[in-house]
Design a binder for these strands. Sequence first.
DNA 1: CTGTTAGCGCCTTCAC
DNA 2: GTGAAGGCGCTAACAG
Lengths: 329, 329
Amino acid sequence: MARIKEVAKWAGVSVASVSRVLAGHAGVSEVTRQRVLEAVKALDYRPDLAARRLRSRRTDTIGLIVSDIRNPFFTEISRAVEDVAYQHQMRVILGNADENPEKEALYLDLMRDENVTGVILSPTLPTLAGFRADDYPFPIVLVDRCERETVADAVVLDNVDAAYRLTAHLIEQGHRRNLFFYGTTSATGRQRQEGYTAAMAAHGLEAQVEAVLATVDAARAAATARLNDRPLPDALIASSGLILLGLTEALQEAGLRFPGSIALAGFDDMPWTRLVEPGITVIAQPTYDLGQAAIELLLQRIAQPEKARRRVVLRGELRERGSSAKRGV
Amino acid sequence: MARIKEVAKWAGVSVASVSRVLAGHAGVSEVTRQRVLEAVKALDYRPDLAARRLRSRRTDTIGLIVSDIRNPFFTEISRAVEDVAYQHQMRVILGNADENPEKEALYLDLMRDENVTGVILSPTLPTLAGFRADDYPFPIVLVDRCERETVADAVVLDNVDAAYRLTAHLIEQGHRRNLFFYGTTSATGRQRQEGYTAAMAAHGLEAQVEAVLATVDAARAAATARLNDRPLPDALIASSGLILLGLTEALQEAGLRFPGSIALAGFDDMPWTRLVEPGITVIAQPTYDLGQAAIELLLQRIAQPEKARRRVVLRGELRERGSSAKRGV
DNA sequence: CTGTTAGCGCCTTCAC
DNA sequence: GTGAAGGCGCTAACAG
C-alpha cells in the first residue's frame, strides 16, 4: 500500500504538495498538480482515512439512527440520506434502534465515539422527552418524530392535519364510530391521535382510541380484541403502516370484509394497500423527500452552526380507495 | 474531551498503563487497574477511534453491501448482521448498491478506503462474473447470490431445489402451462429458473420463462404483456418477492383473480402474501438466519484466514396457500 | 508556489 | 509491574 511519502518521492515533490493537491487547495502550480495526480494513479495511492481523520479532526461521516429498519418508511429515508450524503462526499453510519430507547442511546454513544459530523435521528418517545440537541457534541436533525416545541432542527409530516383529513374523510363517507389505533412509542402516533380526536370533535363525535405498541403483532392482537365489541365500530384507523398491517390481518382472521363489514384506513401507502381488495385508503407520506430534507438540513446546519433552528413540515396526501367507501344507509 | 494523557495524570500513572488497562492486557497490578478505571469514569474518557485505528492498523468494522435496501429480504439480512456484529464489538458500514454494478464497485472501493476488517456482499451478476475473493484486501462472504463454483465463502438458499419444489407443487395441483418470471440481475434468479425448468422437464412439460429486471415495475409490465397470451398460462411463478409483487399487481389490473383465472406462486413470504385473498403460495426464506450465518462465517474467516472455503446452504420452506389451489377440471 | 516540520492521540516495544 | 519514547500517516502552520 502506497503512502503519501512515496507518492511525493515518485512525483519529485514534497508531501505537503501531495496533500494540497488531494485536498483541492488552490495555490498549486498546474505542473505539480499533474505530476502528483500521475503519481497517485501510478501507485494506486489512497489516503489513509484513519490518519487523515486523526490529523484533521473531522470524519465527514454522518450518523443515521432509525427507529426500525424493517419499516419501509425508514428504509426509504435511509436511501435518501445515503444518496445525498455520498453526493457530498460524506459517509453514513446506520444504526437501527428497533424502537428501543436503550439501543438508541447506545447508538448515540457510538456516534460520539465515531466523532461523526452530524446525526439524523428518529427518536422514541422516552428519548424525545427532555431532548436537547445542545446536549450532544454534534448537530442533530430530528426526522419524522418531534414535539411541537422546537428543540432541534426537524423534518416532519403535518401529522395532526393529515390525521384530521383522513378522519374527516371517513366521517364524510358516513362512518361515525371510528376507532383509532396509535403507536405509543413515538410522538408521531400521539400527534396523529390528536388530529383524529379533533376531527371527531369537530363533527360532534366521540373519539375512541386504542394505544398499542407500534408493531404488527401488537396491533393485530389489540384489534382482534376490539372486534368483539358490539356494536362493531364503523371504521378502524391506523396511525402507522405497521399498525395498519396488523389491523388488516386482524380483520381477515375475523372474517370481516371491508368496507362491507367495517371500513379501514391508515397511514403509509405501502405496495400492498392497493393490492388488498378493494384497496385501502391511506395518507401517503413523501418518504424520500423527508429523508432528503433531513440530510440537507443537517448539511446546512454543519455549514452554519449558529443559524436559527428550522423545522420543515411536509404534507401528507390522502389517497382514497375502496376500504373507506360510503356506508350504505 | 479528555485524552489518555489526562487520564494518566489523574490516575498518577503513565499513559502506557492506561492503555494496557483499557486493552485488558494482563500484567497490571490491581491497584493501578482500579485507579485507571476510576480516572476513566471521572473524566468520562473515551479513546479516540481515529488515533487507535491509525496506530493499531485495524478498524473492527465490517462492510455490508446489499443489492437493494428496499427489498425486505435485505433489510432482514442487515438486521441480523448488525445484531451479531455489535455483539462482537464490531461496527457495520452499510452500502446500498441498488442493483447497480457501478454503485457496487464504488462501495467495494469505499470499503477498501475504510480499511474494513471484512465484507459481506450480495453481488449483481456482472460483479459475480469473474469474481475472486482474493482480489480484495479483506475477506469477503457472499450472501444470497453465488454461483455453484465456490470462489468465496458463501451463504445461500437451496435455490434450485426450492424452485423445483415450488414448481412441482403447482404441477401436482394440476397447473401445467406455468410461466416463470425471473430476475436477470442475480445468480439467484438464474438458479431458480434452473430448478423450475428441471421440474417442468421431469413432468414432461415445456418450460416457459420470461427474463425481467428484478423490479416491481419491470415485472408488472412484462406480466401485463404476457397476459394477452391465448391461451392464458395456467400459472405465473416469480423468482423473487419484488417480482411477485409486480405479477400480483398485473393480475389485479387485468381483472384476473387467482386461482380462479390463473394460479400464482413465488419466492419470499412477505406480510402481504397472506393478506391478498386467498393468500399466495410461496417459498419462505430464513432471512435472518441467512444474515446471521453470513456474519458468523465472516468472523470465523477473519479469525482463521487460511481455513478452507465454506458454503452454507439453507433450505427454503414451501408455504401452500390458496393461490395455487387445485385446478378445476 | 513549495518544502520543512510539528504534532493529532494512541499503542507498543524497550528498558528499568 | 511500570514508564519513556518512537512512530502510525497525514495535515497545516510556517518559513522561504
